[in-house]
Amino acid sequence: MNTLLDRLWLRRVLALGSLVLLWEAAGWAGLLNPLFVSPPSEVAGVAFGLFADGSIWPHLQATFTAALLGLAAGLAIGILLGFAAALVPLLAALLEPVMMLLNAVPRVILAPLFVIWMGIDLGSKVALATVLVAVLVFFSVYSGVKEVDQRLVERVRTLGGGRAVLVREVYVPSVVSWVMGNLKVAVGFAFTGAVVGEFVASSRGLGYLLQFAQSTYNASLSLALVMLIMGFVLLLFFASERLEHRLLRWRHG
């Protein structure tokens, strides 16, 4: 199994390496206009420069703070509302249409509104990331509780368990597995919220840098930032996967 995984990794690295080499070669051969697509070596140079002169750190800090705060708040709100709606039918009747509406529209359209309400500082970015994550988590939790295995519910009831025991022993673990299954998507959403929020109006952050690169027609910087964001999100995906394996040992053990 390990050998197979290693081979899979090797194949992925080889495929990515080949793509980068082709891209580089096309750049050197003059097939790509550097005004639109810079070769990977130049993109890497720009990224390295950002770290070498330290100019990237305040932007990274701003984006990560907004994304992680939004992720935490979105998880908390989504879990709380999802649980409450699943257990209290009246609340479900009130919340479901609102959440359905928020789910149906691209929620990033709220970004300008948050800027008007909260200004261009951290608050508006956290708010956008929160809304993006909370709606996703709400539906995970709501479905998780609604679709919980009824055989487990009956088993606990015949053993004498009441509502509190059911919540602790059946609903919470079911919901944790649903939420963990969506954690990677939530991480992606949190970064989307933070970066789009910064893109709309801000004075710091990777989204602000992207907006700056676009307005100055700097393709190298744009590509370097895209690569950086992808790299960081992949790192967080990996961390989420480790957390999922740890919390859901019963599924992977």
Binding site: V156, G160, W250
Partner: peptide, 23 residues
């Protein structure tokens, strides 16, 4: 029950102890 309906996130020992804990 006809099916064992054990809690998948609990070990065999914890499942067997569930009723006692509830009581």
């Amino acid at each position: 029950f006809q099916d064992d309906a054990l809690l998948p996130w609990r070990t065999a020992r914890e499942n067997a102890a569930l009723g006692l804990r509830i009581r």
